[in-house]
Design a protein around this nucleic acid. Structure first.
Length: 211
DNA sequence: AGACAGAGAGATCCCGAAGC
DNA sequence: GCTTCGGGATCTCTCTGTCT
């Protein structure tokens, strides 16, 4: 697990090679392991990177996770698996490039900083517009133009992602999680969570447990 | 008790158009 | 580039009832 964490921490565009070197160092021992064991190790790395990026960068890279789960499943030799490992690290690293290009506009850059910091405190569009000294209607259209999301969509995505993280932790009720993520009530949380993930919170938790 | 879903009313957001 | 306005769309809140 410690090694996975090292890889995740280095999985950035500027030090992608370090991450790949760490993985190579780990996989040196894999020559003695069966193909299935190495595949299992790769699956674990994929899931670890997915969870790490979700929690650390608030990036839901389900598409990358699912794509590589399939690739790993279909591979039949260890050398191909090594290539896939490098591609895997590269794919997660490159997702951060999107983030850099995402916030070209200085106003939106500031808006995102405020939202990321205050999204769980009941922040609304009007508050945000006041902080940025803009009209809410203009901010609304600018935000959509620059990010592709409406303000509400982005806010709910952040809240939902935080909820996903909290759902992984045991002994937390939906009531607790809903308030912790900035939802006004548990029914509202359940409804929004289902809208953004396609699953209710309990279904989501069960799907993780069954993996 | 906790989780979930539906309904209705009110609040807020989004978007296009017009104008500065 | 930015604001204002108005109307429709969407979201939020709260209550209620059912299920596990």
């Amino acid at each position: 697990m410690t090694n996975y964490l090292k890889i995740a921490e280095k999985a950035k565009p500027e030090c992608i090679n370090c991450a790949q070197e760490i993985f190579e160092a780990i996989s040196k021992n894999s020559t003695t392991k069966s193909l299935d064991k190495v595949k299992k190790q790769m699956d674990n790395l994929n899931t670890f990177l997915y969870t790490y990026f979700l929690i650390t960068y608030n990036k839901d890279l389900t598409n990358i996770h699912d794509d590589f789960t399939l690739k790993i499943k279909n591979v039949h030799d260890k050398s191909s698996l090594k290539n896939i490992a490098n591609q895997l690290i590269e794919a997660y690293s490159n997702s951060l490039l999107d983030e850099m290009e995402f916030s070209r506009n200085e106003i939106i850059d500031n808006a995102l900083k405020i939202i990321n910091k205050e999204y769980a405190t009941g922040l609304n569009l009007e508050d945000l517009a006041k902080k940025l000294h803009l009209s809410k209607n203009y901010l609304c259209s600018l935000f959509k133009e620059e990010t592709g999301f409406t303000f509400c969509q982005y806010l709910n995505t952040l809240k939902t992602n935080k909820a996903k993280k909290l759902l992984l932790e045991d002994k937390k009720t939906l009531e607790y999680i809903s308030y912790e993520c900035g939802f006004s009530s548990q029914p509202h949380f359940t409804m929004t969570f289902k809208k953004y993930t396609g699953k209710t919170p309990r279904e989501y938790k069960m799907s993780l447990v069954s993996q």
